[in-house]
């Protein structure tokens, strides 16, 4: 096939992927709402088809341009979506109960591709000399995985905020009393014990109470679960994002002669890093745990969006590969 045909095929596949994700998401929504196993399985099947189209779109584009398929922000978004969906599918294979959360995962993926296809799309073309390096595999792949996991964790945090508010309104929790002897760090122990109690309470409540309402906020998993998911995805994504920035610095050192130069893209990846670092700190701070920390994580997603759409399209810098 000629490279023009391949590029056209890629453009078709990309929309097929968006379509599949958009179809699969409400199926998983059905599972979330009505605990319909059938809808959940169908949703996963459609999502796998969508992932195949997504990867096919990336592959054909790479072949059309004769290089790795992450040479510009449009392709980057495509890869982020593929990583997000792959990660969710792997997770589903190990823990079935996260399947309904695919509703949000797939919507995020579809949104990422569609927004990029509409605003950041460029014809398939070769790389500029600065990008032509082995580091494009290391730096950009790490950045893709980091973006995918960290933005996913922010989505979980946002859902946590909804679920937490819902639970708080439904049943104000009585203060927990934890007794016991005084030890050097009694506060820590009490807190750990109290933490269990809350988690268990929520788990039993969720297991016992059937989903009564049909509004989104009534269908969410328990807030504590979402908070835990958000933290664990951040714990996975943050070191990868850290590494992505470092690999970028090493590359910049060899391409531009400085490892850090406050280029707008560098500045925003640093801002994103600081915000997620603040989230991790907030989560370990009394008075910030819970809602405040979750808001910080949501702020991280905002930073990603700015880095993507604002910095790539409006701000001129060395990283201007979008146009």
């Amino acid at each position: 096939m000629s490279s023009a045909t391949l590029a056209d095929l890629s453009d078709t596949l990309v929309w097929l992927a968006v379509l599949s994700y958009v179809v699969a998401a409400p199926l998983l929504g059905l599972e979330l709402a009505y605990r319909s196993r059938w809808a959940g399985r169908a949703g996963v099947a459609v999502a796998i088809a969508g992932l195949a189209a997504n990867l096919g779109a990336a592959l054909t584009r790479g072949l059309a341009a004769g290089r790795v398929p992450w040479g510009n922000m449009y392709e980057y978004s495509m890869m982020v979506a593929a990583v997000v969906v792959t990660g969710w599918l792997v997770w589903v294979a190990r823990r079935r109960e996260v399947r309904p959360l695919g509703l949000f995962v797939l919507l995020l993926a579809a949104l990422a591709i569609a927004a990029a296809a509409l605003t950041l799309r460029v014809p398939a073309g070769p790389l500029v000399p600065a990008l032509n390096s082995g580091w494009i595999k290391v730096h950009v792949v790490a950045a893709i995985i980091g973006t995918a996991t960290l933005s996913l964790s922010s989505v979980f945090s946002a859902l946590y905020l909804v679920a937490e508010r819902n639970e708080r309104r439904a049943a104000p929790r009585p203060p927990l009393v934890a007794g016991g002897a005084r030890t050097a760090d009694r506060a820590e122990v009490d807190e750990a014990i109290a933490g269990y109690a809350v988690e268990e309470l929520e788990a039993t409540e969720a297991a016992e109470a059937p989903a009564t309402g049909r509004r989104l906020k009534d269908l969410l998993p328990p807030a504590a679960r979402l908070d835990d998911l958000a933290f664990r995805t951040t714990a996975f994504g943050f070191p990868i994002w850290t590494f992505a920035i470092m690999a970028g610095a090493i590359w910049a050192q060899s391409a531009w002669g400085r490892y850090w130069g406050w280029d707008p893209k560098e500045t925003w990846s640093f801002i994103t890093w600081v915000v997620y670092a603040a989230y991790l700190h907030a989560r370990a701070t009394a008075g910030w745990r819970g809602r405040s920390a979750a808001w910080v994580s949501v702020l991280g997603l905002v930073a990603f969006v700015v880095n993507f759409y604002v910095v790539n399209t409006w701000v001129v810098g060395l990283h201007s590969y979008a146009k």
């Binding site: 130069g261 406050w262 280029d263 500045t267 915000v275 603040a278 700190h281 701070t285 910030w288």
Partner: peptide
């Protein structure tokens, strides 16, 4: 930790300005 958090936010917010305006050490002409 509260102070550290506030300072982290201040650092992030301050960095934003560096990407909004052209910077002399990077592009004096701009």
């Amino acid at each position: 930790m509260r102070t550290a958090l506030v300072l982290l936010f201040a650092l992030a917010a301050a960095s934003i300005f560096g990407s909004l305006f052209p910077q002399r050490p990077i592009s004096p002409q701009r």
